[in-house]
Write a protein that binds this DNA or RNA. Structure first.
Length: 118
RNA sequence: CGAGUCGACCGGGCGGUCGCGUCGGUGUUCCUCCGGGAGCAUCGCCGAGGAACGUCCGGACUCCACAGAGCAGGGUGGUUGCUAACGGCAACCCGGGGUGACCCGCGGGAAAGUGCCACAGAGAAGAGACCGCCGGCCUCGUGCCGGUAAGGGUGAAACGGUGGGGUAAGAGCCCACCAGCACCCCGGGCGACCGGGGUGGCUCGGUAAACCCCACCCGGAGCAAGGCCAAGCAAGGCCACCGCCGCGAGGCGGGGGCCGGCGCAGGCAUUCGAGGGCUGCUCGCCCGAGUCUGCGGGUAGGCCGCAAGAGCAUGUCGGCAACGGCACGCCUAGAUGGAUGACCGCCGCCGGUGGCCGCAGGGCCGCCGCGCACAAAAUCCGGCGUACAGGUCGACUCGUCCG
RNA sequence: GGUCCUGUGGAGCAGUUGGAGUGCUCGCCGCCCUGUCAAGGCGGAGGUCGCGGGUUCAAGUCCCGUCAGGACCG
């Protein structure tokens, strides 16, 4: 799980990450990553978007909690001030914990690697 | 043993590692107006449901000054009770279903009035003459006039049923029995209603989940209610001290100090009262000196409300029951991009499969499985409705067999 | 938290005093027309009226419950 300080709490943070960040998708999740944030923020922070198309309230809660648990160790590798938004797709409702973690890793490396642009 | 009815309940368990949220303790860092506050670490307690769901009803609570009257509008509809209240629940009544335990019913009024009843049929609601039956007339015909609702046919429904008398033919026209209706009397029941007797006229269709009538109920909005602080638009605001008030966030008053200098346009008013409360109308009442409309500008932060309650468990008493009284015990989630997750071990259940045992129902031992339902608080309660793998307990009915 | 709307052939819609599931546009099938295709003409098929109950002689229509989709308000 994530502590409250490591989560995105404001609508403006979500908008900044989704609009300004780099995006990479897999079959279960889509990742928005915004790295160059003003240096005042202490740690990297993450937020989750699980829409109603994923399932009812129980499955949405389960997907979000699994994603939080998966994001927690990976958040330490990201530089300070990074904003991360993980959006769950409908396929994530039936995915296992392992495939969810594999997709999240793949999407994160894909979003971080192409730093050669501009 | 088989088939079934009703009610109550559980809805995976135990342990370990790493995490999250509220609250409390400890330590530490920072800030401080010295009251405290914030962050981090660590320890401990607690941490979704029987439906948390749908939002179909009813309340508590808050604001609208009080929560007023009539009309309109909406809702409910056997009776009596229970309840804070209800469209809920219980018992009973009536009607229907079942061999039975039991189940189902928006179950007031059609004799206050209006509307509708397609097609078919002569006729569809104060009756009516198509065929038929009977009588009369003559121009003797596939004729005209009259009587007749017993028969035929149509329809979901045709103005009581059977038998007899009666008649030209018939008809409640008369009579007996039956069914139904209205009124009266007696008995039982708090009541819905039930049982019995008498009189009347013979007779009255259905539909109110069509308008309507009757009885009863309903003021409106909703915790995003509502309140406080900060910031900002703005034009007034900010700061500490003392006293007082508030459940609380906090506020009020006093003297003192500091900063700042009056968005735009239009309408109607200033006690003979604009405008508003009161969302539709009328009355009545209240607030009232500014208010209304449009444009422009600002605001997405924090706190209180916010969890001890029509509360739960046990016992006992009253009541057929729903439920209520008393005693004792317990404290049981409070998030706000929204806290319960991940992994492991053992057991349980389910499905598949293999072996052994048994005449059989089945039992025992293994292996496999993304297997184990439905579905998650958001102010809080009481109901209703709906979804749900599997399981437990109790009461009762019918059938068969044995004693 | 509150207030509403929609569900009818494959698609989009109409459907009133409740009375045969009736209609429109596109699509589909067959035939005609054409050297061929399109357009056009003629004919045809295709329906649990979202689902389950109820009222009524009779329900797409009225009532209740339920499911799915969608919209609005602060």
């Amino acid at each position: 799980m994530l502590a409250a300080a490591q989560r995105l709490r404001r609508s403006s943070d979500f908008a900044a990450a989704v609009r300004g960040g780099r995006r990479a998708g897999r079959s279960t999740v889509v990742v928005h990553l915004l790295i160059d944030e003003p240096a005042q923020a202490s740690t990297a922070r993450a937020g989750f978007v699980v829409s109603k198309s994923v399932g009812n309230a129980v499955t949405r809660n389960r997907v979000r909690r699994r994603l939080r648990h998966l994001v927690r160790p990976r958040l330490a590798d990201l530089p300070d001030g990074t904003l991360l938004v993980v959006r769950a797709l409908p396929a994530s409702a039936s995915a296992s914990f392992e495939t969810l973690g594999a997709d999240l890793d793949a999407a994160l490396t894909a979003a971080r690697s192409p730093r050669r642009r501009r």
